[in-house]
């Protein structure tokens, strides 16, 4: 009989305990979900008010060349920023992609021991270096160098892209390394057994099978470059025009927000226009996530 009561008490306790866990973890997830839903909602509603409250035409914002929200009459052409963001991040990804592939091949196929033990930790460390440090290096090394070698002030899309490519290189290399390392060894051995050289194996077997994963790394790097604010802002020059060369001052979506957000009054047309730029950033994030998911599905097949 004593045992029965004992079990009853313990039953009550353990139901309470189970609920504590369930409620606590569910609350945590709800906080997470609420935050993101609130974020998407507020960025979208603020960003859209440019079009609904300030009567700016969507096409004008996306294709207009003149950005002067405080001018008379105000102009909200954000194309220079959009152009700046896309050109710097795509250039950066194009620069970093082959480099990261080579680094990954070097680490996995050529010197696995040395690569795994020394190179990979260093590259992971570099992935953790704050972006302002990259910006500072860009400002004190790359910009002066470009100023000496090319016409112009040294700042611009080229400097931005170069800084970003160094910044995203570790991320992309890590993804590429993981992709190459997860390749079943039988696949490569089969190719070697047929008498193929290492390069033929890499080119004909390794590259095609890991391509979706490699592209995932490229898109992740691209997304990071696209959303990076301060490192780019420090080296791009911040002129709100589409530059005529890679070495002329330009702007990106993030740099425009960084520079002007603090100086505008909440609710003003200028402020809302900056939120519209943030909305574009957010929509591009969705696009990148979508592409990554699509690529991941492909690489599972």
């Amino acid at each position: 009989m004593a045992q029965t009561t004992d079990k009853k008490i313990s039953a009550n306790n353990h139901f309470a305990e189970e609920w504590v866990g369930r409620i606590y973890t569910t609350l945590c997830v709800l906080v997470l979900v609420t935050t993101i839903v609130a974020m998407v909602y507020f960025v979208a509603s603020r960003g859209l008010s440019t079009f609904f409250k300030n009567d700016v035409n969507v096409l004008e914002l996306l294709t207009g060349l003149k950005w002067s929200p405080e001018g008379q009459p105000p102009a909200f052409g954000a194309l220079p920023f959009i152009f700046g963001s896309f050109s710097t991040s795509i250039l950066a990804a194009l620069l970093a992609a082959p480099l990261s592939f080579c680094a990954a091949v070097f680490m996995i196929e050529i010197t696995p021991k040395f690569g795994r033990k020394y190179l990979q930790p260093v590259i992971e460390l570099l992935a953790g270096i704050p972006s302002v440090v990259y910006g500072f290096i860009g400002l004190s090394v790359i910009v002066p160098f470009f100023r000496d070698v090319f016409p112009g002030q040294g700042v611009g899309i080229a400097a931005g892209a170069l800084v970003l490519s160094i910044m995203i290189l570790p991320t992309m290399t890590t993804v590429a390394t993981d992709a190459l390392a997860s390749l079943p060894s039988g696949l490569k051995e089969g190719s070697y057994a047929l008498g193929a050289t290492r390069w033929q194996t890499i080119y004909r077997v390794v590259l095609p099978t890991t391509l979706p994963s490699l592209l995932t790394g490229v898109v992740l790097g691209l997304a990071r470059a696209f959303g990076e604010a301060l490192a780019v802002q420090m080296v791009i020059g911040n002129a709100p025009f589409i530059p005529r060369s890679l070495f002329e001052s330009a702007s990106t979506l993030t740099s425009a927000i960084t520079l002007s957000m603090g100086n505008t009054v909440s609710g003003s047309a200028h402020n809302n226009a900056l939120w519209s730029l943030a909305l574009i950033l957010m929509l591009m994030t969705f696009v990148f996530v979508f592409i990554v998911r699509w690529l991941e599905k492909r690489s599972k097949l």
Binding site: A223, G227, L281, T285
Partner: peptide
């Protein structure tokens, strides 16, 4: 849906997170 949310949140540009922080 939560997985998607986590993925989106992890690739959000930090400047946008900052803006949201400013607002909220």
């Amino acid at each position: 849906f939560i997985r998607l949310v986590v993925e989106v949140l992890s690739s959000f540009p930090s400047i946008v997170v900052g803006l949201f922080g400013l607002l909220m």
